[in-house]
Simulated scan of single mutants.
Amino acid sequence: MKKIYFLLLVSLFVKSSFAQNSESLDLEKAIQLGLENNLDVKIAVENINLRQGEERIGLGSFLPIVDAIYTRNYSTEDVTQKFVNDPEPRQIDDAKSRSENFTMAAIYGFRPEAFVVLKRLGLLTEVSQLEAKIAVENTVAGISTAYYRLVLELQRYEVLKKTLELSQARLDIAQAQYELGGAGKRDYLTAEVDYNSDLSLLKTQAQIIQAARINLNELMALDPSREFSVSDTIRIGEMLRIGDLEESAFMENKQWLVTQRQENVAFLQMKELQVSRLPALNLNMNYVNNTS
């Protein structure tokens, strides 16, 4: 009787710890929360913005540099003039003077490697975009795996609970037969050992479920102690064919595309060094206007 009470107590504790204050969570919602909160995805998006900014800076190498300076000066002086042929000095009070200076300088430097640099920056932007897609795909894959792992562990818990109920019934029968003298003590002790073993498996499974919940919450960037009730329905999609998978792996695999782009970037870096040996062309233009 004590064992039955203990079994009910364990079952109620596990159910309350898994279902209390829990909200419903399906796979689509889990993926949405993960994409909104995952820091790897946010960092990947910011890297795209940085690469695009570098590409815009690279376009500036084709534009000339123009500097313009404009100055304007005023002065008021008291002037005393004395000439050789005129002994009387001339006194001029509040003599005003004005000067203006306008200078404009334009420099245009053409470097042959600028085209290669611009193309390399464009490839780096593509690499950052592919890396962002990889971060999204890894997040979706990780959350999907963790979600269905939790579903599997919950189903396994129900199986172990049924097994423990059967072990409890077997133990009760063995105990009754032993007390009535219909069976030996060995059968009763064997049933008790099996019951304790199944009870230990049930407790271990409860810890596995809790760890699976924490792992799912971490992937969604939520509080590890947050509780969700997940749906145990797994939808099976259309049948997969190995030929289509191989073709998709070469055409759509982002990691392979990133490797391909990085190889092209390395080739352009080498070409950039080669082109930098060519002569550069600089054009200077100055315009100066002084007015006194």
Rank of each mutant, 00 (worst) to 15 (best):
T190A: 06
P64K: 13
G60D: 02
Y188K: 15
L35G: 00
R51F: 03
A280L: 10
I4T: 06
G60I: 06
V258G: 01
E247R: 15
R186L: 14
K271Q: 11
S11I: 11
E23L: 08
F62L: 13
D172R: 08
S99M: 09
I48S: 01
I236W: 06
R56I: 14
I242N: 03
F110L: 15
P89R: 12
K185C: 00
D86P: 00
R235C: 00
S75W: 04
T71N: 13
Y5H: 05
R156A: 03
G53D: 01
P89K: 12
V10Y: 04
I107P: 00
R226Y: 03
R235P: 00
E272H: 05
A221F: 05
S292A: 09
I236Q: 07
T190F: 06
L152A: 13
L118T: 02
A191C: 02
K119C: 00
A141W: 07
S22N: 06
R277Q: 11
L130E: 05
L27Y: 04
E246L: 10
S231T: 09
Q175A: 06
V288W: 04
S167T: 02
S17D: 11
E113N: 12
N289G: 00
L130T: 03
D26Q: 08
L268Q: 02
T139G: 04
V41S: 02
Q262D: 05
M220R: 12
V230L: 14
F115S: 01
G237H: 04
G60M: 05
V117E: 06
N282T: 15
Q81R: 15
S276N: 07
R226V: 06
F62W: 11
